[in-house]
Design a protein around this nucleic acid. Structure first.
Ligand SMILES: [Mn+2]
Ligand SMILES: [Mn+2]
Ligand SMILES: [Mn+2]
Ligand SMILES: [Mn+2]
Lengths: 220, 220
DNA sequence: TAAAATATTTAGACTAACCTAAAAATAATT
DNA sequence: AATTATTTTTAGGTTAGTCTAAATATTTTA
């Protein structure tokens, strides 16, 4: 029972949607995430159910089975490990690696990913701060919070970004915001919920509410 | 004008067949190399001709165009660079890397392969001794000869293998034959053309004619 | 709770990449 | 040169993965 690239991508999409909202995953959410027609999704859901990778009830949405979950987790592990490789070893910027990792994640070979993991020193987070499940599929959790929820006077270390799109990441580069920096929230403007922050005790910048909502920090 | 994985594989097969025999490449040779029905090859040849990647004359065989040659060369470059990565960085054995490289060679992204090349230090040969074309598609040639052609008393440095199959490579490992070793031809048995060789001034082994034909050395 | 709006599935079609069997072209042999 | 053998192409079919348009089911709203 071999699994195709398209099937893998659907499993990953379902996993990620289920991660956010905890109801059953609906056809249209998948279609939106995959940029395909809803009819194509229905087709694929039938195939995945056939292979026992999802539990599918017509009109009611889907859920990953144990095996579907396992495969999706492996795929995410591969994607994120390749992203680490591209940034740490090949010197790509964090906004350049996603599309390459989308391809690399589908390369088959168990030994490959474990050796890569070893070569990289078993990283637990990818270049965007997302956790990398280990070889047994176990996740590392962190208690992070959006910058938009910090109170004036509170500090945090930047540990992740919610939006992975190139323009956002390049904007962050431009204003000196990168993973690992310390953010001190100086002031919030009531009118538009924008915030003034100090970066690593040095420069000060103003972040719109939208930006602040897309940055994760660990408090303190 | 996008190119598919299947198309890339056909271009590479055509390139490699043309490399050996210098007549036009015939449908059946491609079918044999690709393990497909001749009818499937004909289908693909039409598509490749449509895209101006080959010159195709019905019943007469095919030839790569300038562009087809360029793409095949890039594909071989990618395959061999990935093989170097797998062996040098991830610690795979030389008999384990081909199938992985078959997948990795199809990952799209110009920057990727040039960065990988740089990361690896611009290697000119892959783990099997095959030349890696540079970013401009230029090849490094070496004056190598099969061990089966050495005269008794002649020495050579092992620079390549003609057969890349796992059992052959593992056999070489077992008898202590690896790229870079010095081979001194001690004696040839007329009856079966097998040869007695000394490896790097130390051990002596007997190689069958078949094995000797699959080993390339640079004389001296 | 019936009508309207929305979400989902079905029906029917398309393309790439394969296949087998039959037809046609080319090459080899008498 | 005619027959036979081999090679190649054509004809017709399959599967995965996509699409649009139409039908149907579910949810929302009046
Ligand atoms: Mn990514
Ligand atoms: Mn990432
Ligand atoms: Mn290879
Ligand atoms: Mn090789």
């Amino acid at each position: 029972m071999t699994i195709t690239t398209a099937e893998e991508n659907y499993l990953k999409a379902i996993f990620k949607i289920a991660e956010k909202e905890d109801k059953a995953v609906l056809t249209n959410s998948i279609a939106a995430a995959m940029n395909t027609a809803a009819a194509s999704v229905t087709d694929m859901l039938k195939r995945l159910a056939e292979k026992h990778l999802i539990k599918y009830e017509k009109y009611r949405g889907v859920e990953l089975t144990e095996e579907g979950n396992r495969l999706a987790t492996i795929l995410i592990r591969k994607h994120r490990l390749w992203e680490v490789f591209l940034v740490e070893k090949l010197g790509f910027a964090w906004d350049e690696v996603h599309d390459l990792a989308e391809q690399l994640e589908h390369v088959q070979g168990e030994a490959l990913i474990d050796r890569l993991d070893n070569f990289l020193g078993h990283p637990r987070f990818d270049p965007h701060g997302d956790p990398i499940p280990d070889a047994q599929g176990r996740w590392t959790f962190r208690q992070q919070v959006r910058v938009s929820l910090l109170q004036p006077g509170e500090k945090g270390i930047l540990t992740g970004v919610d939006d992975h799109a190139t323009p956002f990441l390049q904007y962050l580069d431009q204003i000196g915001v990168a993973l690992g920096i310390e953010l001190l929230l100086l002031h919030r403007t009531e009118y538009d919920q924008s915030v003034q922050v100090r970066i690593s005790g040095k420069t000060e910048v103003t972040l719109s509410e939208k930006v602040a909502q897309n940055l994760f920090v660990i408090r303190g």
